[in-house]
Design a protein around this nucleic acid. Sequence first.
DNA 1: TTGATAGGCAAGTCGTCACTTGCCTATAGT
DNA 2: ACTATAGGCAAGTGACGACTTGCCTATCAA
Lengths: 99, 99
Amino acid sequence: MASVGDLFQALADHTRRRILDELTERDGQTLFEICGRLATKHQIASSRQAISQHLDVLEAAGLIVTRRQGRYKFHHIDVRPLRSIAERWLRPEPRQETT
Amino acid sequence: MASVGDLFQALADHTRRRILDELTERDGQTLFEICGRLATKHQIASSRQAISQHLDVLEAAGLIVTRRQGRYKFHHIDVRPLRSIAERWLRPEPRQETT
DNA sequence: TTGATAGGCAAGTCGTCACTTGCCTATAGT
DNA sequence: ACTATAGGCAAGTGACGACTTGCCTATCAA
């Protein structure tokens, strides 16, 4: 369900890359934590809903996984989809994309 | 000028990834060659102008370089921007993006 | 139970993107 | 010179993406 297109499209947005930066530096943050840190450290003043939608896109792309605990929802980065992202063109190998 | 955003945004399109596939398999093709091969081998029946605009985007992202010779314009893939594309999140290092 | 906190849902706006359409320039062959 | 080939420029269209707005649900503390 998470295709190569979903992956690149998720990475195509500046705010979403910043979210991954933030989770790389401190994994397992909640939505409000991410909002605060994006605002103070990266001058990204998007609304909570905007960030929430970005997190949905990242999760659909398989780049983050979520864990619910009470009224909190923690977001964890998953770098596995990123490992072989560019090898498709970096070595002369057959490629298989169904999208 | 070619920012990280340009790079990911260029890769976010399916047809542009196919163009890179095609140039990986056979480098230095002209616009018409790429059009023909995309149509026959990848079932992509976009117009010549559409493909031309895709090539512009790829060139702006630094993923292809062009070489003019008479009335022909040859397109060559440049994989250098792809080499360190995901390392930003694959290892806990400081990241520097100005976009 | 009441209020505050953390998050979700859905419609709507606005800009960007992929693509088309129509016409124009330049090189090469005859 | 004339024609075909390779490519370019620019305006227009339709759809998608990022973001907002308004309201709703759920959990926890007092």
